[in-house]
Simulated assay, not measured.
Amino acid sequence: MVDEEKQHGSGGRWRWLVDVTRWRPSPSQFQAAADLLPPHDRAAIARFVREDDRKRALVSRLLQYSLVRHALGIPLHQIRIHRTLEGKPYLQNKNATFPRFNFNTSHQGDYVGIASEPLCLVGLDIVCISKPQGETALEFINNFTSYLTDHEWNCIVCAGSPDEMLAEFYRYWCLKEAFVKATGAGVGFGMQRLEFRHTNWTNISLCIDGEEASKWRFWLFKLDELHLASIAKGHPEDAIESFRRTLSDVVVQEEELHTALEIPEEAFTLWAVEQFIQEYKICCLS
């Protein structure tokens, strides 16, 4: 579900992806890229101990600033991105064209991604289907039983081989993460309250505490043999309070929101890190 040629995105709705394994910076090149960001972002990146984690964190922040510039036309040096207490990134700049513009990022394994929406809440999650070390697939999945409903657990254990069970678990986990990230709640929401149902992983629906969440839509993508991504789109009324305060209170017609929810998903646009760095340098000189 990746397109290396077309740059999908319009009307505040964008889907970007970076394969971070293709970027192998020297220490000086890494530092030069980090220096393009505001001090608070550089400090956040430096907190990561592992080199791979620092690289993903850096690319995630470069993606955020670049996407906002493309989507809203705000000069890079004027963009103000902050986080709620729960860690949800949001744009502090107000925008008259897309007053409810919001975005979400995710990174795991080889990929870093970002998705944005002009009206709906949007959540993105990327997972790497890695085989557990020192335990079987079933033992690994057993660690997460408190986050799964009985229906989801039965679907996982009946999926087939250990590899198939693992992939099935990650599909459910990816969707749950995308939803809680879209609302701004994070894992504190209570994953066991969410139950996903589907038809061969299409027509995906969600029940929260047993009630259908009719104002939400979900998509699941296979990025490659080891990576999955999910997109969650929903009604702004479901944002938690701390995140809702960051959104404009401009009234949006229900018909308009419904139309936005039903827009089908397309492929992610694949970017190279060097493109972002070059863009930053050009913007800084102009």
Results as ranks from 00 to 15, higher is better:
residue 8 H to I: 02
residue 9 G to H: 08
residue 10 S to N: 14
residue 10 S to V: 09
residue 10 S to P: 09
residue 10 S to Y: 12
residue 11 G to A: 09
residue 11 G to C: 04
residue 14 W to H: 05
residue 24 R to G: 09
residue 25 P to T: 03
residue 27 P to T: 07
residue 27 P to I: 02
residue 28 S to E: 13
residue 29 Q to Y: 02
residue 29 Q to C: 07
residue 31 Q to A: 12
residue 32 A to R: 09
residue 35 D to I: 00
residue 36 L to K: 09
residue 37 L to Q: 01
residue 44 A to P: 05
residue 44 A to S: 08
residue 44 A to W: 07
residue 47 R to T: 02
residue 50 R to V: 12
residue 52 D to H: 10
residue 52 D to N: 13
residue 52 D to R: 11
residue 53 D to Y: 01
residue 60 S to H: 00
residue 61 R to A: 05
residue 61 R to P: 02
residue 65 Y to K: 15
residue 65 Y to R: 15
residue 66 S to C: 12
residue 67 L to K: 05
residue 68 V to W: 08
residue 71 A to W: 08
residue 73 G to D: 06
residue 79 I to P: 14
residue 79 I to G: 04
residue 82 H to D: 15
residue 82 H to Q: 15
residue 83 R to C: 14
residue 85 L to W: 01
residue 88 K to F: 10
residue 92 Q to A: 13
residue 94 K to D: 04
residue 94 K to P: 00
residue 95 N to Y: 01
residue 97 T to M: 07
residue 98 F to Q: 12
residue 100 R to E: 09
residue 102 N to K: 08
residue 103 F to N: 08
residue 103 F to M: 09
residue 104 N to W: 03
residue 108 Q to W: 01
residue 109 G to E: 02
residue 112 V to F: 07
residue 114 I to Y: 09
residue 114 I to T: 10
residue 120 C to F: 05
residue 122 V to E: 10
residue 123 G to L: 10
residue 126 I to P: 02
residue 127 V to R: 11
residue 129 I to D: 11
residue 132 P to R: 04
residue 149 T to N: 03
residue 150 D to R: 14
residue 155 C to Y: 07
residue 156 I to G: 04
residue 157 V to W: 07
residue 163 D to E: 10
residue 164 E to R: 06
residue 164 E to C: 04
residue 169 F to R: 08
residue 175 L to Y: 03
residue 178 A to Q: 00
residue 178 A to E: 01
residue 179 F to P: 00
residue 181 K to E: 00
residue 187 V to M: 14
residue 187 V to Q: 12
residue 194 L to V: 01
residue 197 R to W: 06
residue 202 T to R: 14
residue 204 I to L: 08
residue 204 I to T: 10
residue 205 S to H: 12
residue 206 L to Q: 02
residue 209 D to W: 01
residue 211 E to A: 13
residue 211 E to D: 13
residue 212 E to C: 04
residue 212 E to L: 14
residue 213 A to N: 06
residue 215 K to T: 13
residue 216 W to K: 06
residue 216 W to T: 08
residue 220 L to S: 06
residue 222 K to I: 02
residue 223 L to G: 03
residue 223 L to H: 07
residue 224 D to E: 08
residue 228 L to P: 05
residue 228 L to I: 00
residue 229 A to M: 06
residue 229 A to Q: 09
residue 230 S to F: 04
residue 233 K to N: 02
residue 238 D to E: 13
residue 239 A to H: 06
residue 241 E to I: 10
residue 247 L to F: 11
residue 247 L to R: 04
residue 250 V to D: 13
residue 253 Q to H: 14
residue 258 H to G: 13
residue 259 T to L: 15
residue 267 A to K: 13
residue 269 T to R: 03
residue 271 W to R: 04
residue 272 A to M: 13
residue 277 I to F: 10
residue 280 Y to M: 07
residue 285 L to R: 12
residue 286 S to W: 10
